[in-house]
């Protein structure tokens, strides 16, 4: 049923790639300048508590380019980036790229699972609420979303942690890997045990927006002429919701879910902090608190790419899957 114009899509992705490149250069520059202007002293941050002589200090200072002008430092930073390196992480003492790959992978599992759960549950609840607009079911779902939209992510995490881990003892408190065990010796169950609560927290938070969006869209469909005519043709209410309602709101809803990568990443930072889940979120907080400038800048760049990809996928779905837009400007 879905036919995609490959040539046009390739052109579109090429165009997007150029945009991403420009965006990354700008973001990298701005965030670098922001850190340079901040009270963080890279030499101090590098040394931590160690005591060194004046000469050594000068060498390290030279390494960080403290005697260079801001413009030169920015250029230097962009040149390093262009070679594909993001520098050396001060905390983990390995290249930033390595840290990000390993941390991002474990976060990706967390984000992906909660993204899928919140998408399905949110869409289902939205359809239900929209179809039953004005009834108690709708009111319950609406209230639930309303409250969720107002609750801080980390607090929901704390409450779930208190209830399921501390009070019921069903899940461990913190740490993705049991202490004293290497991460590759962890069994899938031990690992799942530590993934469930953070993933649930993140899903619960993500549900609200997709539910409200789906609900509003379905209500709009219910007001549409084609909904009216489907009723006039004698189709049953749930039949119309299924055949016409879901058909018309599914694509926009998937798009919206892709647009939520921004909040998803933000949510992960908070949730990982609460559950001590060793992913990109924890790395971000550690990098920020312990002034690991290279890692922090690397994370900014990677998260920008992540959000950008989400937005692009949303765009593709919108522009290339909908039959109306698909053939509009076919050359």
């Amino acid at each position: 049923m879905i036919k995609i114009n490959n040539k046009k899509l390739a052109k579109f992705i090429g165009f997007k790639a150029i945009r991403l490149l420009i965006l990354l250069i700008v973001i990298a520059t701005i965030s670098f300048i922001m850190i340079q202007l901040s009270p963080i002293d890279p030499v101090r941050a590098y040394l931590g508590q160690r005591i060194v002589s004046e000469e050594q200090l000068a060498i390290i200072g030279h390494y960080w380019g403290t005697e260079l002008s801001l413009g030169e430092r920015v250029l230097g930073w962009l040149q390093t980036l262009a070679t594909g390196s993001m520098g050396f992480s001060l905390i983990y003492r390995v290249p930033v790229t390595e840290v990000i790959i390993s941390k991002f992978t474990s976060s990706l599992i967390l984000m992906l699972s909660s993204w899928v759960i919140s998408g399905f549950v949110g869409f289902g609840l939205g359809v239900l609420a929209g179809a039953k607009e004005g009834t108690w079911i709708d009111k319950v779902i609406k209230t639930y979303c309303y409250i969720l939209q107002s609750s801080p992510t980390f607090w929901i995490g704390l409450v779930l942690l208190m209830f399921f881990s501390v009070y019921l003892g069903w899940f461990p408190i913190g740490l993705s890997v049991p202490i004293g065990q290497l991460s590759d010796t962890v069994t899938i169950w031990e690992w799942l045990d530590r993934l469930i609560l953070p993933a649930i927290t993140l899903s619960i938070v993500g549900i609200a927006s997709i539910t409200m969006y789906t609900r509003d869209k379905l209500i709009n469909v219910k007001k549409s002429d084609y909904f009216l005519f489907a009723q006039a043709r004698g189709e049953s209410f749930w039949g119309i919701i299924k055949n016409h309602g879901i058909r018309n709101i599914l694509l926009p809803a998937i798009s919206i879910q892709f647009l939520s990568f921004n909040e998803l990443f933000g949510g992960t930072i908070l949730v990982e902090q609460v559950f001590a889940y060793p992913g990109i979120g924890q790395a971000t907080v550690a990098a920020g608190l312990r002034s690991d400038v290279p890692l922090l800048l690397g994370i900014v760049i990677v998260s920008t790419i992540f959000v950008f990809v989400g937005n692009m996928l949303a765009d593709i779905i919108y522009k290339y899957v909908d039959p109306r837009l698909r053939s509009v400007d076919d050359e």
Partner: peptide, 14 residues
């Protein structure tokens, strides 16, 4: 049965 006003009364995606 209703004969509606315009093509807008048909589901655009079906």
């Amino acid at each position: 049965c209703l004969i509606p006003q315009s093509v807008n009364f048909l589901d655009p995606l079906m």
